[in-house]
């Protein structure tokens, strides 16, 4: 999933100076699962905003809504009848949903209520870790299904570097060394000899380095 973190309310408040109505807009997908921007977080932020506005003596209508997705036009269309009641939207979707909402309603100010962090997985309740950077050219077959692009601090294709200590990365004891993991996996698969195969220079043109990307499937396109 896409993992996000709630922004501190202090960062959001200056954007809402002078607004008379604001919609706090959640998303039922990834940000719900990672507890940053689902229905519950919408309620919490809306409640906190109301208390702030009340203390400021401002009459601000704070609406709450959570869409199935903010990254699909048909769900965003559900706002069509109600959006005009609001001066601004604080979207708790990932950066994709925030932008897509703004694209769909060009005259509305849309502000981010979360920091979108990475594509990751839940290690346990309340702990999420990065697993993929969407580099566009998956190399997991070579590395025992452990990604050095997302999980090595230096994204080394032929690691580990000299800073790997007791399975941990040189940047900190809380960070696992991806290359230790890769080697453990290769060993478990009986493929440790593959370690010595040099992974060639990467084609980063399919990464963000190549510019904004698009996937087109002609067979399913309408």
């Amino acid at each position: 999933m896409i993992v996000a973190e709630r922004k501190p309310i202090e960062e959001i408040l200056p954007w809402l100076e002078g607004v008379r109505s604001v919609l706090v807009l959640g998303c039922n997908e990834c940000v719900t699962v990672c507890e940053a921007g689902g229905k519950k977080e919408v309620g919490l932020l809306a409640s906190a905003l109301r208390m702030v506005f009340a203390q400021q003596g401002r009459e601000v209508n704070v609406g709450e809504r959570t869409l199935e997705r903010q990254c699909d036009p048909e769900y965003l269309d559900e706002l069509r009848d109600s959006i005009d009641a609001y001066d601004a939207v604080v979207s708790l979707a990932c950066g994709v949903g925030i932008q897509f909402t703004a694209e769909r309603y060009p005259s509305k100010a849309v502000y981010p209520g979360v920091n979108t962090c990475f594509m990751g997985a839940a290690l346990e309740r309340g702990v999420w870790a990065e697993r993929c950077q969407g580099c566009g050219q998956c190399l997991l077959a070579l590395t025992g299904a452990v990604c050095p692009v997302a999980r090595c601090a230096k994204r080394l294709f032929n690691g580990p570097c000299g800073g790997s200590t007791a399975g941990k990365c040189e940047i900190g004891p809380d960070v696992e060394c991806a290359w230790q993991r890769i080697i453990d996996r290769l060993k478990a698969l009986g493929r440790l000899a593959d370690y010595e195969t040099l992974i060639p220079v990467k084609d980063w043109s399919k990464d963000r380095a190549g510019g904004p990307r698009k996937v087109v499937r002609e067979d399913v396109r309408s």
């Binding site: 229905k39 809306a46 109301r50 709450e64 959570t66």
Partner: peptide, 18 residues
Amino acid sequence: NPVGRRRRPEPAPARAGA
């Protein structure tokens, strides 16, 4: 409470709100 006693939350839209 500086929020004031009389305040009630805005009625939540039909699709949202606990």
